[in-house]
Design a protein around this nucleic acid. Structure first.
Lengths: 196, 196
DNA sequence: ATTTATTTGTAGTCACTATTACAAAATACC
DNA sequence: GGTATTTTGTAATAGTGACTACAAATAAAT
């Protein structure tokens, strides 16, 4: 499927772009977009700046690739969790628990890659992360609105705020049990305002 | 009270350090520690770098002064809100509402100065903010533990996480009604797990 | 008026940032 | 084997970050 027409001649690549994206994802997740320099990335990959810019174009270019890769591999599977055949509050509670587990899963890289990315100083990177996050929030709000239109905004805001808080606390070092306890408390409210 | 022994001779100051701290506070709150350069501060104050370093020592030195000033003027008055003569859940709910109001009060500077400061890349500034935040969290946890020891950690974590989320969402542009609605939903859980 | 203490303005240092010019090196094609 | 094509390594560029050396300027104290 991948026609590598432009790689038939010349020196072969010394690094696999796919693996490079995975490595970069680890760096960005652990230290945040701002704190990771291009030199950090090239050092970690064992390549030099020209190879980096030939492959990714720019730092935000790499970040975009990282976000795409993350969406395909580590993002919360909203479409699977927010199902039409379970009560809305139950599904949302499951989503919050899933978030807590993911945010705490890697102690070296706390929190959500995207939520943390929405807070970086670089305009381009921040908007890329914001776009992804807005999409997820719309998905959640629409899911709620389908069965509880009058409570959709309130509930969606509550859920989003809780997830932002969970990500921040995961980054601050809270372990899984503590995050999970908070997620479950938040789930209680949802059961109240979104009766099955 | 202020013995300005060392200012008896020489050229008088062209700027008031107190007012300078207030101006710096606005800058840091609006754009965050990382995004504000020393040049931004000196430009805003109409002074030159040597005057800045003579007055504050360093960028984190100024930030410390800003945090102190903030503690005295704009911090949530925990000691007033978390009273012994009201139910714990009621007081905590009032605190969350107060946080929502403060975080949304200045549309140009969303969120909590300290909570946002705990996420900057500079080690010194981050730890200064973290220290302040840890103190506040301990105060809250102790307040809960006095009457609900078994639920203290769970409730304190939930409150802290909610506040982090509120600050993040305020920074993302949520207006007061939305923040307030979320704060009130969080208050409901507290009423459940901390019965009067 | 002269001395003295202090701040100011100019200009610079040094480290680091993202990004790129250029030429040597290495491979596939003919 | 020769050539075309592409990547690589070296090194540089332009910009910005925090911070400072130094001498002129100023005003109080004498």
């Amino acid at each position: 499927m991948t026609t590598n027409k432009s790689r038939t001649r010349g020196r072969p690549r010394r690094f696999d772009p796919e693996a490079a994206v995975a490595t970069a994802q680890r760096l960005f997740h652990a230290r945040g977009y701002d704190a990771v320099s291009v030199a950090d990335v090239t050092d970690a990959l064992g390549i030099n700046p020209p190879s980096f810019y030939a492959a990714f174009g720019s730092k935000v270019g790499l970040y975009q690739r990282v976000l795409d890769h993350w969406t395909d591999t580590e993002a919360i599977p909203l479409a699977d969790i927010l199902r039409a055949d379970v009560p809305v509050a139950t599904a949302l509670a499951a989503m919050l628990e899933d978030a807590a587990r993911r945010y705490a899963s890697d102690p070296a890289a706390g929190g959500c890659l995207v939520l943390e990315g929405t807070r970086c100083t670089d305009d381009g990177a921040r908007e890329a992360a914001l776009t992804l996050n807005l999409g997820a929030e719309s998905f959640i709000r629409d899911y709620i609105a389908a069965r509880h239109p009058e409570a959709a905004e309130e509930a969606a805001d509550f859920v989003s705020t809780t997830m932002s808080g969970l990500s921040a606390k995961a980054r601050a070092g809270y372990d899984l049990p503590r995050l999970l306890a908070t997620a479950r408390l938040a789930g209680r409210v949802l059961a109240q305002i979104l009766p099955a």
